Simulated scan of single mutants.
Amino acid sequence: MSQTLTLTRPDDWHLHFRDGEQLRGTVPATAATFRRAIVMPNLTPPVTTAERALAYRQRIMAAAPAEADFEPLMVIYLTDATSPADIAEAAASGIVYGAKLYPAGATTNSDSGVRDPAAIYHLYEALEKHDLPLLLHGEVTESEIDIFDREKVFIDRYLNDIREKFPALRIVLEHVTTRDGIEFVQAHQRLTAATVTPQHLMMNRNDLLVGGVRPHNYCLPILKRREHQLAIQQAVLSGDSRFFLGTDSAPHAQDKKEAACGCAGCYSAPAALPLYATFFDQHNALDKLEAFASFFGPDFYRLPRNSDSVTLIRESWIIPAHVDVGGVTMVPWQAGIEVPWKMAD
């Protein structure tokens, strides 16, 4: 049994850094493993223009360790007020790699998001024209729709039509959580993809609710039934290049997670690659990890694959119970769990 695993350095294709003092902890945690990361724009206020993306990028780079070879890939946040000119400017900036659609109210800091995804076809047209990917939080938000059905309803109500009407638009269904999402991606060509988080690979809603509510497993989109988890696992283990790594690592202070109305998000960055390695190892598929983590994402985004490497060693360690992130105490996802793989020093 191999005791080391060397991979082309991976990238994280869906990530939350937050802002301000928290960057001092979140950026180094990602830069220690990943060469690049697609950085989500749901700040307060959101990153809605190329100008704001540049300013945010500068704050991220100021927090990166001097020795780190790390590149944040910026994203603009679509609103009802976004114009085709905003998209053209973002595409021409050289630092923006996607536009994120948050349905208003779907998740953290999404109140400024799009109220009706069917009302912004002029923006999808601009994204297609300028070859800027559409990154989707694919859920509806109406209160009468069950939270476990919101991804499927979004696909049925909006996404099938968007895919049909804009055939040259690159679309990423972020943090896919359902069999319906998997089948949507599989039914379309190479311009359709999905990112996959460690929590949706390794858990289902039993891990959130059985034996008590477990707030550090609460994320949005929410964990689904085991049948959906199995569909995600099968897609990833098949080696399909349309499914690739995106942690959706989402830091929140411990007291904001462990609260009467706790925040959604799993802060997986401190142990992300060892956790993915653990999943692939458990399924006797370590040979599939490198393509999932290091090849499929850059290929979809039309970027070069990284030329350097990282090494994991087969050595058990325990994810710490707490970490300090810019002076804020956070509980990493899977805190206190023994993991059989760790990053080599």
Score class of each variant (00 low, 15 high):
Trp13Ala: 07
Asp308Glu: 03
Gly138Glu: 04
Ala193Phe: 00
Arg57Met: 08
Ile162Asp: 06
Tyr102Gln: 10
Ala271Arg: 04
Phe296Leu: 00
Ala99Pro: 06
Glu227Met: 06
Pro221Gly: 02
Leu159Ser: 03
Cys261Met: 10
Gln189Glu: 15
Asn206Lys: 12
Gly113Trp: 10
Thr278Val: 11
Ala37His: 05
Ile76Val: 11
Gln189Gly: 15
Ala90Ser: 13
Leu275Gly: 07
Ala32Lys: 03
Pro340Cys: 09
Arg314Ser: 11
Tyr56Leu: 10
Asp149Phe: 00
Asp180Glu: 13
Ala272Leu: 01
Asn206Ile: 05
Leu312Pro: 00
Leu273Gln: 02
Ala335His: 01
Ala271Ser: 04
Trp317Leu: 03
Thr108Phe: 05
Asp308Arg: 07
Ile313Arg: 05
Lys257Arg: 07
Gln186Asn: 15
Arg302Cys: 13
Thr178Gln: 11
Arg179Ser: 13
Ala253Leu: 12
Val328Lys: 11
Ser83Cys: 02
Ile76Asp: 03
Pro332Gly: 01
Ser2Arg: 11
Gln186His: 08
Lys129Ala: 13
Ala118His: 13
Pro304Gly: 07
Ala91Thr: 14
Tyr97Val: 07
Ile155Trp: 01
Tyr121Ile: 11
Thr329Pro: 01
Gln189Asn: 15
Ala63Phe: 05
Phe243Thr: 15
Trp333Pro: 04
Arg59Tyr: 02
Arg36Trp: 12
Ile337Gly: 06
His16Cys: 00
Tyr97Pro: 12
Thr82Arg: 08
His283Ser: 01
Ala277Met: 08
Tyr124Leu: 14
Leu201Trp: 10
Glu151Ile: 15
Thr141Pro: 11
Leu173Asn: 12
Ala264Ile: 12
Arg59Gln: 15
Glu71Cys: 07
Gln3Ala: 02
Ala269Ile: 12
His216Ala: 03
Pro270Glu: 04
Pro215Ala: 02
Gly211Phe: 05
Lys129Val: 06
